[in-house]
Simulated scan of single mutants.
Amino acid sequence: MSDTPGRLLRLLSLLQTGRERTGTELSQLLGVSPRTVRRDIDRLRELGYPVDATIGALGGYRLAAGTAMPPLLLDDDEAVAIAVGLHTAAHGGVTGIEETSLRALAKLEQVLPARLRRRVRALQDTTVPLYGVLTTGGPAPETDPAVLSVLAAACRHGERLRCSYAARDGAVSRRHTEPHRLVSADQRWYLVAYDLDRDDWRTFRADRVFDPRPTGVRAQARTLPAEDAAAFVTASIVGPRARHRAVVTLRTTLEDAAARLPPGTGVLEADGPDRCLLRTGGDALDWLAYRLALLGVPFEVHEPQALVDHLRTVGTRMLDAAR
């Protein structure tokens, strides 16, 4: 999707400072050509923003003082796309700009028309952040903002939803669900919902959801079998049927741990500048111990106790062999 809406917001922010800025200065700050700046200025004027211009070597642009600002005119996809980007950044998508993103998201809501404000608010109200890095491997998938908007509305209104869903092998099935919450994690989005066809709770990757359609039927009140939606997604990533669930501190940076761990290992969370927490699982203690030993970094197992005991037994055996 074009970054024009985001650029216009940035241009408005620069012009609202009250000082006059030249076209060259604006083009450098925005990373675009002076011709693009002129086109964006014209678009703002077409939308009703009073942008004044002065001619000459020292001339430039600024917003007219004392004029009421009209609502920001974005179409549905543009508004939701910006909200998705800001929400992702506010919850760990980009390090260091979390508070700034939250402020920008609040400002965006204020200038949106009521109809779009409701869609953006639904996305905020129904999304639970999962902090950390998923060891899924590869770049984050592209998720359609329009799909997220429909999923968020179904969660907020407690409405059943039908959609097409693509499995990992590419097979597509039609699903009938009761959406509960959206979970944002590591630039990925998950829908936690009750699958009516399978009579159980499920996690759906939002980028694999197609053609979601609300049915108009109210969802039943159900109890999620987890502390919250983020915990449910964590369990599904670690392995819903894993016999052993482990929580381990790795004494290395989050970035280094993510590079060492194979895809699908679990969820990483920073625990200081040179420590991180790994939530993982497996069916066999031998395999869990082997996986941790091969990471090549110091670690401490918090749970389960059975894994601690197994590591102690294996360590004693190794020391005896070394002697």
Results as ranks from 00 to 15, higher is better:
D195F: 04
A83Q: 01
P212R: 06
L74E: 05
R175M: 06
V133K: 01
E178P: 06
A106W: 04
L295Y: 07
L307V: 01
A270V: 12
G158D: 05
V94W: 06
P145L: 08
V233S: 03
F299T: 01
A57M: 05
V111F: 00
A79P: 01
E255H: 14
R312Y: 12
L29G: 08
R279H: 14
D286I: 07
T253I: 15
A57Q: 09
L278E: 01
L15R: 01
S164D: 12
Q187M: 13
D309G: 06
T22C: 07
D40R: 05
L73Y: 06
L134T: 08
E109M: 13
T215F: 02
D199I: 06
L8E: 00
A221G: 13
A226W: 05
L130H: 05
P5K: 00
V301E: 03
A257Y: 07
G170E: 11
R205G: 11
R35C: 02
D256H: 15
P139Y: 07
V209Y: 00
R162T: 14
R312V: 14
E78A: 15
Q187T: 07
L73S: 04
F232S: 04
R118F: 09
W201N: 01
D3C: 08
D274Y: 14
V297K: 02
H91G: 05
F232V: 05
Q220L: 05
G48L: 00
R243L: 11
T95M: 08
